[in-house]
Design a protein around this nucleic acid. Structure first.
Lengths: 66, 66
DNA sequence: CTCCAATGTCATTTATATATGACTAATACT
DNA sequence: AGTATTAGTCATATATAAATGACATTGGAG
C-alpha cells in the first residue's frame, strides 16, 4: 500500500487534478492509488514533488523480512 | 542520477550478484545504474532492501529552489 | 604481458505500465 | 427529486521496462 490518496486529499486535489499536474491519465492515478500496478520511478518522483513530499513518505514501508 | 552503484560497491557486490539477489537480469542493473531507463517502484524497493537503505537515499534529489 | 571477472552495449522478444474512450457507481450540491 | 463531479472499472492500443543471448571493452590479478 502507498499513501498517495492521503497526500492528495491533504492537498484537496481530485484524481483528475493530480493527473493533470503530473501529466498522466486519470486512470493511472486511480490504479496506482488502489495498488493495481507498479508505477515507474519517474512517475513516483513526480508524485512526490507535486504532493510536496518525498519517496519514502509515499512508498516506503519499514518491513521486517521474515 | 541515482546512487545504486555507490551502495552496491559499499556492499562489495557485482552487478551480477545484485541482479541475482533481486531476481532480475544483470543488464537491468547495468541500465538502471547508467540511467538508461526508469525502473519500476517494486524494483526500486527491492534494490533499497538488498542494499540496506531506503528509497530516498537511492533516488531522491532534494532540489533547492535557487 | 596474459587471463578472467566485471562491465558496457546491442538486437530481439516478452511482459506490463500507461493512454484512451467509455460506462457505472457513488458523493455532493441545489 | 435532479445534475454535476469524483471515483472505480473495463477493453483495447501503444510505449517501454525487463529478459535473453551475444559480443566488446575495461580493470585487476597473476
Amino acid at each position: 500500500m502507498n499513501h498517495i490518496k492521503e497526500y492528495r486529499k491533504a492537498k484537496k486535489m481530485s484524481q483528475y487534478e493530480l493527473s493533470q499536474a503530473i501529466g498522466v491519465a486519470r486512470q493511472t492515478i486511480n490504479l496506482i492509488e488502489n495498488d493495481k500496478y507498479n508505477p515507474s520511478l519517474s512517475l513516483c518522483l513526480k508524485l512526490a514533488h507535486v504532493l510536496g513530499t518525498d519517496l519514502n513518505a509515499l512508498f516506503w514501508e519499514e518491513d521486517n523480512e521474515d
